[in-house]
Design a protein around this nucleic acid. Structure first.
Lengths: 343, 343
DNA sequence: GTGAAAGCGCTAACAC
DNA sequence: GTGTTAGCGCTTTCAC
């Protein structure tokens, strides 16, 4: 039963190798200041004894943890993609990641609290609903980088994709195909919804299609898209841009059940390029966020703050890109329709 | 710039409150042995100073970390559902979770290594490809609970759903609807695939349908299901049970594109009850794993090992349950078809 | 009820 | 090159 015996420590290795603990410490860290022979012998003993350095003691003593705390939500598929990028970027910057999940039963405050006790040197927050005042009290303690959420604060760095630009890309794509009557299903109260909606409206105006602007309230869920679709059925447009992929999926479902062909009768564009949109079954044209750039940016901001580098702009906006799949096509030439005007 | 100033420590609070550090420690831990008035005053000072205990120092000193390490894969949706259950169960048992993710760029060995350095008292492994010998060397160090994977070792606890039973439930459901020609698309090398396949075969035999047994090789991805569907098209059965939901989705797509109605011409049953299967668009009949029971079981096993309790069986098998949705129905009465035989 | 003191396992000065 | 020493922030005896 392993719980009875103590774990191997530096001192054990030192004793076994017949050297001082300081020397073993030097060897284990790969720091300069040890003879090649000694180094080898210590390493051999450590391996034989199954020695594992105690990160807690190590970090406690050295004052720094080189730990970056990340708060993510288990329910959000996009967060998982982002984690991959963050691990990679953090590793390259010489930092370790420590994860704290938000679940249906575990709030953001709890998640952040655990991370604070772990003495992270900075926090990366994915989305989330923390109020500005709460963000403030956290940011007063350590650098905070917020991803995919707004934060009108000088002490919080923000990294997110350019939602307005994404909407522009969606509308441009549809107009390029010949669409004019393009509606938008928004994301309600969700972060980014206002920006994506405004982007849609501006793009429509830019194309001289102000009269065709039509915003239907939606949300982030599949059911929101389904509800919005029902409202569109009375007078369907030839194309719709939707707040996110999941909502677009619900919308697609209702449209098809009501006999509307996609993209024959109506084209649909989602947002996020989640795995969902890639499924052959769904094959959704969408707007993809540049995960690697965003992850690298977040780490770069966090490290800059930690190391006190004056740093550049506190807000990083990453351009998204259009991913064309099977839910968009030219509009069916309606009776009396004018030929599409080129932008 | 907050990185300049030292964090608040126990000593700071003690000085400010005019008491000893030992007393503050007692108060902060809620341990008995402090006057009510003192307790209140210390708490007030701690709050005012924004004191956060340092978990590293705390755990270093107390010898125990009360930390459970979890290795999960960011790509697996099912893992995220499981995390929710684990956080809950761990909290109830008085343990904290520390997460280590496997990503496309970060292997299982790295993930486990980080956890070992964090001095977790036990490890919970989700799935994974570690070889038996590697598992052995980890299990020699600390208790290991493997979820959703096999581990023929006395020193590793295993918690998983009853894959064979799940297949039985799927087949029983289909036979009950009147199906006889039921095929199975397996999961290739994935954990659980062999069990689900064997369960299917046995259930078919139990129903006297041995002659209709038909196994098509597949995998865990959507493309695997799509490939399998193409192979089935030549002589389509009236129903298919598939290794998992994602593969079933790919299969559904190919079937429908080839003019086969679901469930009109062919019924489909998935496995896992992932969010995917719940989408209205997909609405897949599937086999659901009991996440809460599995999570609670894993924590219970880990804690029992940590605390040296003699403990019960080292393997926990949780029964799954059938979730009926829209992809299963009675078979279309074929010309000359015999009436379905009741089981 | 409260305080003093001894470490947990490790790193970082500083001597030798 | 190598050893000695002094803590990091906390918990835990053990006195008072």
């Amino acid at each position: 039963m392993q719980s009875a015996e103590r774990r191997t420590t530096l001192a054990d290795v030192a004793a076994e190798a017949g050297v001082s603990v300081a020397l073993v410490s030097i060897v284990m860290r790969g720091a300069p200041g040890a003879g090649a022979a000694t180094r080898e012998r210590v390493l051999e003993v450590a391996r034989r004894l199954g020695y594992q350095p105690d990160s807690r003691a190590r970090l406690l003593r050295s004052g720094r943890s080189r730990l970056l705390g990340v708060v993510f939500d288990v329910r959000h598929p996009f967060h998982h993609d982002l984690l991959t990028g963050l691990y990679d970027a953090a590793g390259k910057a010489g930092y370790q990641l420590t994860l704290s999940a938000v679940t249906p039963l575990r709030g953001e405050r709890t998640a952040v609290g655990d991370l604070l006790q772990d003495r992270c040197e900075a926090l990366v927050l994915f989305g989330g609903q923390l109020r500005a005042s709460e963000l403030a009290s956290i940011a007063a303690r350590l650098p905070v980088v917020a991803m995919m959420r707004a934060a009108r604060r000088r002490d919080v760095d923000v990294v997110h994709n350019d939602d307005a630009l994404g909407s522009h890309q969606a509308v441009d794509h549809l107009v390029g195909l010949g669409h004019r009557r393009i509606a938008h299903v928004d994301g309600g109260e969700w972060h980014g919804s206002a920006e994506r909606r405004a982007g849609y409206q501006e793009a429509m105006r830019r194309h001289g299609l102000a009269e065709h602007i039509r915003v239907v309230s939606g949300g982030a869920g599949e059911e929101d898209g389904a509800r919005a679709a029902e409202r569109l059925l009375g007078d369907p447009p030839t194309a719709v841009t939707v707040f996110n992929d999941l909502s677009a999926t619900g919308l697609l479902d209702v449209l098809r059940r009501n006999g509307l062909g996609v993209p024959g009768d109506i084209s649909v564009v989602g947002y996020d390029d989640t795995g969902l949109s890639r499924l052959a079954h769904i094959d959704l044209t969408t707007i993809g966020q540049d995960i690697d750039t965003m992850a690298a940016g977040a780490i770069e901001r966090a490290v800059a703050r930690i190391e006190g580098t004056p740093a550049g702009p506190r807000e990083m906006v990453v351009p998204p890109r259009l991913v064309v799949r099977g839910t968009t096509g030219a509009p069916r030439p309606a009776a009396g329709a004018r030929p599409p005007r080129q932008r």
